[in-house]
Structure formats: structure tokens, C-alpha cells
Write a protein that binds this DNA or RNA. Structure first.
Lengths: 224, 224
DNA sequence: AATGCCACTTACAATCATTGTAAGGTTTCC
DNA sequence: GGAAACCTTACAATGATTGTAAGTGGCATT
């Protein structure tokens, strides 16, 4: 079942949206506090986010802009303002669809379903800026270049991408890649890191993986 | 560069659309005859199709419906009729976006670009009904089940999917999979066909590959 | 500047998945 | 019943992937 996360501050409208989606058979949830929405949304692992523009604190646009480069779900923006400029802004920030309130439930449902169907096949794809990684096959795409990673390289990059732009310690890498925190030879990590860097270089990501002496590794991809 | 195929019978409007997209840096082309549009569109290998509803012969809706199950490109429907029913029909048939004429060029361009960006990552994915195959990695998805095929199995399925629902002769399979028309051992094909069928069965496609005695093989997937 | 630690790289060998071969079984049709 | 076409299973060769080993390079602290 698809999970839809609704971000809307007006109590009445929020409940209505949740109800609409639930009645249509979706798992619809809506945060009620807007303190740290972004973290909360990510934690809910949505298949689709429906985003209102007027929110307390960060606007929907800002939220969209900051989530987009790392999100693996589509974003549908819903707003009361109905100008071409708004629509262009939304789409320019990476929103996947743009609807104006009031919106007929059937239209909303149809648009939502379309996004869900299209993105279903991308659920397993991690994205950081222009870099994307299929976590099933470890197919890597950067700009227009493609390369298949081996399993070990893939697992390492997967963790680095999930953690980006934070540093990942070796203590986190060992369990994620080899399933054990036990002291495996430090060298094996370095060898595979070396191989991964070579693979990344071949698609044009020369020195995307940086080492922080004594701390671990970071992935740094230019967020366009 | 992205290639956009425009299907519109009104000469003036068609030229305008082509011009709009070309000015924006796309490779825009538009068939002028509507005899066998569908074949023509496929031959053009579009990254996006912009489809008018009112066409001589088959309507845009019919065209959308018949192309969709096997298309690996998004479809944007453009129409002068502006009712919710039209939009729902279009989306229900698998259209990826729906805009009404007259439409501001900037809106059209923004929507088109959004579709292109989303679908860029799916360019290498073949689809037949609910079955999809990544032709880079041979990742197979049917309904909600996933499986990775080996290279040989993948190449066979790729050809079967490209040809579906037509029969594929052995004379077509050998060059596509082994690069040689030479009569290699017949057995090797049967062995791999057997392996592929087993893989398909594991995702729930029990007997999707049928043998036509003396002719070849067909892939038959229920088109929902 | 010397020392020790951490990080990087290359070559090699063991391992594992994939592929083709071989052989025997099953279905279909006359 | 028998031949032709098709299917299945087991096994061995191949090739990619992975970890081991060993040696080099660079940074930081004394």
C-alpha cells in the first residue's frame, strides 16, 4: 500500500485531505507539528508528499527545495495562489505536480495516483544532487554517464549517500557492508574504498569521496 | 539532447509548438501524416510525446491507451476541452500530464521539462503491461516482485518484450543473444529459455513464455 | 627532522555466480 | 509407435568479484 504524507497547517483542510486519501485506500498520514517537518517526513518514508505552500516557519517552497535533492519520492504542491509564476516556481524547485485549491478530490486522487505509478519503479533509487544509485542493482548514474558497481562498492556508496553530507565512521561502515562490527581487517575497507573511488572517477566524480583523518569518509556531490 | 515528438493536426498550432520547443533547445519533431502515427512515433524514439486529443482517425485518447502499455516515454496530453472528466480520462489512460489549450508556453515548457527529468532515469526500462525490465542491469519487476536476471536470460527477455505480442523465431534470438546467426547448438537456447521461465515463475509469471511449435516463442503478459 | 600512525594502491589467489555442454526425459503430431 | 521438437537436470569451464598481503605515501606530533 502506498503511503502519502500530507503537509498542511489548516486543521480542517488537513483532515479533509487525509480522509480523502484514506477513503481511496491509501495510507495517509499528516504531521501536526511543524517544528522539524523535514526529518519527520523522511522518517515516515513516504511514497508521495502533498505539500501546502503556506506553512508556519519554512514555506512549502523552501521545504520542497531542500528535500528534493535527496528525496526518493514525488512532491505534489497544493496552493491557494493561482498564478503562472507560482506554478513555474514550484516546478522549478523540483515539484512533480502543482494543483490549486480548491481542488476536486477526484482530480487530486488521479494526479496522485499517476505520480505514484511513475515513481513506483524509482523507489529503490537513492539520489544526491545529480548522482543516483539503484540500491537493488547498484547501477550508478551521474549526469549522463552510467556504470554498474559491484556489490561491495555499492553497499559502501549506498551508506555514504544515505548519510551525505555527514561523515560516516568506519564503525558504521563495517556493519552496513559486512554485517559485523567485529574487527575485520581495516585494509579491506581501504581496498574497496579505493575501488569505489576509481569507479566514481570513471563517471566524472573525481574526488567525491573525502577522507576525514581519524573520523571516516564523506560523500560530497555538488548540489546543482 | 531530449527529443520531443508532437502530434497535432492543426498546421498552425503544430508549427507553433515545434517552434516553442526548438527555441528552448529541444529536438522537436512532428509527424504531418496520421496514417500510421503509432509506428512513426515509436520509430522516432521520443523522450516525450505531446499529444493533441482531436486527431483525424484515432483520437489522442485511443493513441495514448494503445501506446502506453509498451511505451518507455511520458505522454503529455493537450486539449481544448477543459472538463474534469477529460482530465480524468486522460490520466486514467496513462497520460502523464494534462494541459488545456491555450496554454502559456512557459507552463508547457516547465511541465515538459519536469516529465523529461523524471523519466530520464527510466529510459532504459522496457515495459509490457505490469512487467518491466531494466535493460542495463536486467532487473525485472512484475507487480510488486523483483528479481535480477542473468545477462543471457535478460537478453532473451529483452527481445521477447520488444517483440511482444509477436512470435520471435530462433533465427531472431540467436543473433540478438549470441551475436551470431550461425546455427549454434539449439540446446543452449532451450536451456536458457528454461532458466528464464524459472526466473519468471518466481515473480509470479508462471507461463508467460509460450512456445509455438516450429515457429518460436511469444511473451504474453496480461495487459491489465 | 624523525617517528609512528593512518591512508592509499597494486598484485595475487580463493571464491562464487554464470554459462555452455551433455545426456536423458517429455510432449506433440503424423 | 516413432520421430521431431521441446524441456529439464547435472556438471564442468569460465570469468568476475572479493579478500589477503605487502609495500608506498603523507600527515601530525614530538
Amino acid at each position: 500500500m502506498f503511503r502519502i504524507v500530507i503537509v498542511e497547517d489548516d486543521d480542517y483542510l488537513r483532515e479533509e485531505l487525509v480522509h480523502t486519501f484514506q477513503k481511496a485506500g491509501y495510507d495517509a498520514v499528516a504531521p501536526v507539528s511543524f517544528e522539524s517537518v523535514e526529518t519527520e517526513i523522511a522518517a515516515l518514508r513516504p511514497d508521495l508528499v502533498v505539500l501546502d505552500v503556506n506553512l508556519p516557519g519554512k514555506s512549502g517552497y523552501e521545504l520542497c527545495k531542500s528535500m528534493r535533492p535527496r528525496s526518493s519520492f514525488p512532491i505534489l504542491i497544493l496552493t491557494a495562489r493561482d498564478t503562472l509564476a507560482d506554478e513555474l516556481t514550484a516546478l522549478g524547485l523540483g515539484a512533480d505536480d502543482f494543483l490549486t485549491k480548491p481542488c476536486h478530490p477526484d482530480r487530486l486522487l488521479a494526479r496522485a495516483e499517476r505520480l505514484l505509478q511513475t515513481w513506483k519503479r524509482l523507489r529503490c533509487v537513492l539520489t544526491v544532487g545529480e548522482l543516483s544509485l539503484d540500491t537493488d542493482t547498484y547501477k550508478l548514474i551521474y549526469k549522463d554517464r552510467m556504470r554498474l558497481l559491484t556489490e561491495t562498492e555499492g553497499k559502501i556508496l549506498e551508506l555514504l549517500m544515505k548519510s551525505s553530507p555527514d561523515v560516516v565512521g568506519k564503525d558504521a561502515l563495517f556493519p552496513a557492508v559486512w554485517g559485523t562490527a567485529e574487527f575485520v581487517d581495516e585494509n579491506i575497507l581501504q581496498v574497496n574504498m579505493s575501488r569505489l573511488r576509481k569507479s566514481l572517477a570513471e563517471v566524472g566524480l573525481g574526488d567525491a569521496i573525502q577522507n576525514i583523518r581519524g573520523k571516516g569518509y564523506v560523500l560530497e556531490v555538488d548540489r546543482l
